[in-house]
Amino acid sequence: MNDPVAEDCIAVLVLDDHQMVIEGVKTLLKSQPKIRVVAEANRGADALQQLLRHPEVQVVLTDLSMPQMSGLEFIRAAREVNANLRIVALSMFYDQASVTDVLSAGGCGYMLKSLSPEELIQAIEQVAAGHTYFSPEVGSMLLQNMELASLRPTPATDAPVPLTLREREVLELISREYSNHHIAEKLFISERTVETHRKNILTKTNSKSIIGLIRYALRHKLIQ
């Protein structure tokens, strides 16, 4: 039986159909006293079972290309098991659609498997603190695409939809990478209420992802 995880230690689950990747991640994190891999799995279904056995898991690192259950399918299912999980995709490749799909499914980061030990540690610490994390190459691609989109002319009828004061507050905190938990604490409301506001904002703005929402908000000057 595994020793209990200290309160100040970040509990991690690693999911990848290649055991060598899992062993590599464990090796990189072995010397980190504040991060501990408490569970691992080679299939999505097994990882879901591990989440039930290890409710202390805070951060999940998951591959995207896996048989039987894809990484995206796992992210959606894992969020049903624990809505507070911080899930980061690990992949050899990246593109706008893949990153957007991960964020839409409930992920909070996207990293390349060529990452350095320092980057892996920084990513886990950052997402555990309620922020998002992208490998530098991924972040640059997203920023470039957002800048290009902001330069495209928009129809004159593309007026911003009216948002309530509370929705504007939630939108501002989303743009600052606050998690639902931290938004709830900041605004003194429940996480369920935050999630409801988040869904309403996405619906009102016709945004398919958080990246799309932020792009919309910047275009209409709803955030600075």
Rank of each mutant, 00 (worst) to 15 (best):
V99E: 08
M1S: 11
L48E: 03
E195S: 12
L72F: 15
L218D: 04
A97K: 11
V170A: 00
S207V: 06
G139F: 02
T100R: 13
A45R: 15
D3L: 11
L72M: 04
V14E: 12
P160D: 04
Q32G: 02
V161Q: 08
K26D: 08
E172Y: 07
D95T: 04
M141D: 00
E195D: 12
D63C: 05
S116D: 10
A83D: 06
F74I: 12
V38F: 01
A78V: 04
K208S: 13
L171Y: 09
Q32D: 05
N84W: 02
N42K: 13
A97F: 11
E56L: 05
L48A: 05
R36Y: 02
T157R: 08
Q58R: 14
L72V: 15
I22C: 09
L165Q: 15
R36N: 12
D63V: 09
E23I: 00
L151H: 09
Q122N: 06
V88S: 04
M111D: 10
L148N: 12
H18N: 15
D95V: 12
L222Y: 02
A123V: 00
L85E: 03
Q50C: 06
I121R: 07
E177F: 14
E137L: 10
Q224L: 15
I124M: 02
R86Y: 01
L222V: 05
P155K: 13
S190P: 07
P67E: 02
G24A: 12
N145G: 07
P117H: 14
F74H: 06
L61Y: 11
E73P: 03
I210A: 03
R36L: 06
S207K: 04
L64F: 14
Y110D: 11
R176Y: 03
T196L: 01
R176C: 06
S150T: 03
L85D: 03
H54D: 01
E177M: 03
L213Y: 04
L112P: 15
F74W: 12
K221H: 15
G44V: 12
V5H: 00
L51G: 05
S135R: 06
G71A: 05
V57N: 01
R43F: 11
V194Q: 11
G212F: 01
I35F: 04
S207E: 03
S114Q: 10
I35R: 02
A77C: 07
R215K: 07
S209C: 06
L222W: 14
T157A: 13
I223D: 06
L15Q: 02
D16E: 09
Q49P: 00
T164F: 13
V25N: 00
L213K: 05
A45D: 15
A97C: 08
D46P: 05
P67I: 10
H182G: 01
V25G: 02
E118T: 14
L163P: 06
L115I: 11
H18R: 14
R198M: 12
E147K: 09
Q50W: 05
V5G: 01
I183E: 06
T196K: 05
V99W: 15
N200Y: 02
S140Q: 10
L148S: 06
L61D: 10
H197R: 09
L61M: 08
I174V: 09
L112G: 14
A78K: 08
K113E: 03
